[in-house]
Design a protein around this nucleic acid. Sequence first.
DNA 1: GATACTTTCTAAAAATTTTTAATAAGTCTT
DNA 2: AAGACTTATTAAAAATTTTTAGAAAGTATC
Lengths: 405, 405
Amino acid sequence: MNYWDSETSNSLAGLELKKFMSKKKILKYLYHSGELSSTKIGKILHLSAPTTLAYLNELMDEDFVEDRGKGNSIGGRRPNMYGLKKNSIYVIGVDVTRHHITTSIFNHELESIAKIKVESSELKSETTLNKIYNEVSSVIDDSKIDPDKIMGIGITMPGLIDSELGINYTYLTNNGKSIAYDLQQKFNRPVFIENDAKARTLAELRYGAAKDFLNVLYLQVDWGLGTGMIFNGKLYRGNSGFAGEFAHIPLETDGKLCPCGKRGCLETVASGDALVEDAISSLNSNVESAIYKYCQNKDNKLTPKIIIEFAQKGDQFALSLINKLGLALGKGISYLIQILNPELIVLGGRVAQASEYLETPIKQSLYNYCIPKLREDAKIVQSNLGSKAGILGAAVIVMEHILEN
Amino acid sequence: MNYWDSETSNSLAGLELKKFMSKKKILKYLYHSGELSSTKIGKILHLSAPTTLAYLNELMDEDFVEDRGKGNSIGGRRPNMYGLKKNSIYVIGVDVTRHHITTSIFNHELESIAKIKVESSELKSETTLNKIYNEVSSVIDDSKIDPDKIMGIGITMPGLIDSELGINYTYLTNNGKSIAYDLQQKFNRPVFIENDAKARTLAELRYGAAKDFLNVLYLQVDWGLGTGMIFNGKLYRGNSGFAGEFAHIPLETDGKLCPCGKRGCLETVASGDALVEDAISSLNSNVESAIYKYCQNKDNKLTPKIIIEFAQKGDQFALSLINKLGLALGKGISYLIQILNPELIVLGGRVAQASEYLETPIKQSLYNYCIPKLREDAKIVQSNLGSKAGILGAAVIVMEHILEN
DNA sequence: GATACTTTCTAAAAATTTTTAATAAGTCTT
DNA sequence: AAGACTTATTAAAAATTTTTAGAAAGTATC
């Protein structure tokens, strides 16, 4: 029985369908929890002990579940623990950013089981789809894994993405055709496309700072600014999948022109792009700064990372730039807190690396703009997923989809 | 068997619990759909035809469900339809506003089955709880309905409300104790407290403009400005129940002082209060206006309703006031659209009565501040629930709670 | 280390649900 | 108006699941 293909359940009815759904739920809970005892599964799914065990035995015969030996007891016979069988399924994650394509293959616990492959590639080019195809193919070949065990491919990228239709309306428009569908035909297995920030949000929910939280906001402060939201423990996509275009709300009247065409968008003041632009434009009034000297060398290109490194060395100009960004970001966050009353806000992306310098100005803005009760609810933390966040998000997307329903 | 008490399911286990949950779900779907055939219920709950019918027969024996006769067919034997039994359960709704307490009793279809009782009462007074008690008691007595059939009481009011704890942190603080619990003891039946805008949102979802929509925002533009949100078909309350404090986001730098203590809140420019204040403060530069003449009479008090009526008569000053409010409201709405990508926005409350004059300025702001794809997704409509909205919301809250889980 | 108490596991009996198949009651086309 | 095709209902048979109860395997306490 193929539990990973969304078609399977359509071909079943009645008792067979019920059993299939129960077994699929068992797989889902094992994925979420790592390992569980038969008794616990039975309690969650409202199944009796003999039935639960019977289902588990079937799943073991089908090679999807394995016996993990005795677990701990709190005053009784020690239970047998069960978990997803190692090396029985794999997924592929592809993270497409403005300048790179990063690809890797993951096992059922979403551990990367091969070297993460990074390739330079401009997002706007028409050849990106082909490059993705080549990258994935080479990762599959190099891994030497039985291709039948690769359950799906997840691709994350920036832009307005309708993940149901598989269309990116901003980049890779593909003449309005579904990129997901096109690639699915080529690979002959399910392909899922998702907005990068939303995928990272799910990665945080399952493996990062947002684990076990229910109402979470994720801000990806990188070159741009992206947002993902978890409501009642589920990723919120909005009506067409475009929710979270928080970066393009009008924060300042008559502010800087944004690539989106509007003026004063939050992204024009709270993003890596904004940080670098701000640095360059006020360079001449800060000739004492180490950044000024750095920029005198024509070969040196200023990046958020460089600015943060100067801040870490105590450079006042760098610190003031980050402080200014923090104030603007804090104002934006206060909007989100007021509207959404989250319990946790996770900051990720390149610029969030500077969180130790961002904390104070963000808090200052929250004190200015938030109702105290709401502010007190919302803890703000930095992501701890590091550079894996993107590709992990792409892999999580696959697991979430194939375990859904 | 008492299907309405949340305690019942705790006392059950195994097969009894499973059956109880299935039967409760049947009641829930009958409430949502009005009436359904046995076959349809079976398909929804994944139960076979004989089992579904057996459950329905039990529910009929228990006097909760009734046979509604033959339904329509699309090419086969006509099905028997089933619905919640008339006169078997009732709920009470209480809508507490700044100056009034409105109370009524509703049947299972949330039709008000008695005269709606309105009583003047200032919200801030310490006697409000007693007044609520008296109002409800008198409505119960007057209705002559078997008190055992009254399943619960829903109370809606403005303020930061934690509906789980039953506490209103803004008004009726009750020394930090649960108002819901206190009243529950007095009435000896479940009492639910909810923020007025959130309750009205649910009323719109079940009986109003938002029926059958999944991602909806509701804006209650009354004296104040309140918000409710439906995500994935469910009311979103936020981590502590405070989500939707959209009125107090800082829209204008150094704007008017808001009662909340901050400056430039959306509520200071887009609410009934703001409309009246704006009218009064610019009265002297509009001596030609009919509003100016109206205000010369000391007995006349200016209200949003009056201003809207003048606008309807073509008064330019009134129209310009509403236009200004619409622009500000539109800017606020554009924030929500950008962040949440809703499919529908419902405008309710006194000021929304002027929607024919609000439509143009709101749209103008959306054109200014929204990404086109997101703007196109969001239909904006006016509520059609009228003055019943508040009390209907209070009643819906009870039904939603007792049918939950 | 014996005793009391928990929790897990398992086999057989009991109960429930589904399947099957036949009947009833329609709609739609010709 | 007859025949083909759908859908709903119901009774009996078949299959599945739960319950029950006892054994197994622990922990905690005295």
